[in-house]
């Protein structure tokens, strides 16, 4: 059988979109992966959410609002401090990886997460949350969505449920929600965190080279993915609340 990396090279930019308009896994360019989510899986945490987007599985836990631990200097007088932790389990990804020390609070992903949530959480009411994430492909975005859901589950007021999605550019067509293999071939592309009700963007991160005239379509594609996600989230949320508390 072919080597994993050889396959990636062979797919490099070609074959991501077949002549018929199908992607590697059979989706059309604007379709997102299948979605499953559950709220309140972990009774011990104040809020928790579990999202499966394709093969990406993310668990988010929220502890708070609670008193600031550690030195007083960390707490801000007028608003809650949001602390995010982002870690990848060793069994995530194609090969088992050694758990790295650098992962955790200081990591790049965690900071991004923090930025997205700070836009949504009404932090002036509370301090401290903690979030753990496990992933495969597009994990940053799924993680953000999971985190937003968990915060919701914890009962912390939010301006809006942050939905994050990404889009990649392959051969001139924008592909919404790339899976692991597509990301390996063309890179993560554009990641977008959207507040769906107002249409405001909490985070936009472009990690690939995109020609100017293509930026619009790619952002549209990512935004489409977010809106689709939001619709699914909304349904699931209502269902779960109904279950827990009777008719709303």
């Amino acid at each position: 059988k072919r080597g994993l990396y050889r396959k990636r090279r062979g797919l490099y930019r070609e074959g991501l979109l077949s002549d018929d308009g199908f992607r590697l896994d059979g989706r059309r360019p604007r379709e997102i992966r299948s979605l499953r989510m559950r709220l309140g899986l972990f009774p011990r945490a104040d809020g928790s959410a579990y999202i499966e987007q394709g093969n990406t599985k993310v668990v988010a836990l929220v502890y708070g609002p609670r008193e600031v631990r550690g030195p007083r200097s960390r707490s801000a007088p007028d608003q809650a401090v949001l602390r995010c932790r982002f870690s990848l389990a060793p069994f995530s990804g194609p090969e088992r990886r050694r758990p790295r020390g650098g992962e955790g609070r200081g990591s790049d992903l965690a900071l991004r997460l923090q930025q997205s949530l700070e836009a949504a959480v009404l932090t002036h009411l509370y301090p401290r949350s903690q979030i753990d994430v496990y992933s495969d492909g597009s994990h940053c975005c799924t993680g953000t969505t999971a985190a937003a859901l968990a915060v919701l589950d914890a009962g912390i007021p939010l301006r809006d449920v942050v939905c994050a999605g990404s889009a990649a550019l392959a051969e001139g067509t924008a592909l919404t929600d790339p899976n692991g293999a597509e990301e390996a071939a063309v890179g993560p592309g554009l990641a977008l965190a959207l507040l769906p009700a107002s249409g405001l963007l909490a985070l936009v991160q472009l990690s690939a080279r995109v020609p100017c005239e293509r930026l619009e379509p790619v952002m549209e594609a990512a935004a489409d993915g977010c809106r689709e996600l939001h619709r699914a989230l909304d349904r699931e949320l209502r269902r779960s609340l109904r279950e827990r508390h009777g008719e709303v």
């Binding site: 072919r2 994993l4 299948s34 093969n55 194609p94 090969e95």
Partner: peptide
């Protein structure tokens, strides 16, 4: 598939 060190790797891919 075959991974980096030549060991065999089990990969799960989605199919719609």
């Amino acid at each position: 598939l075959r991974g980096q060190q030549g060991r065999s790797v089990r990969v799960v891919r989605e199919h719609y």
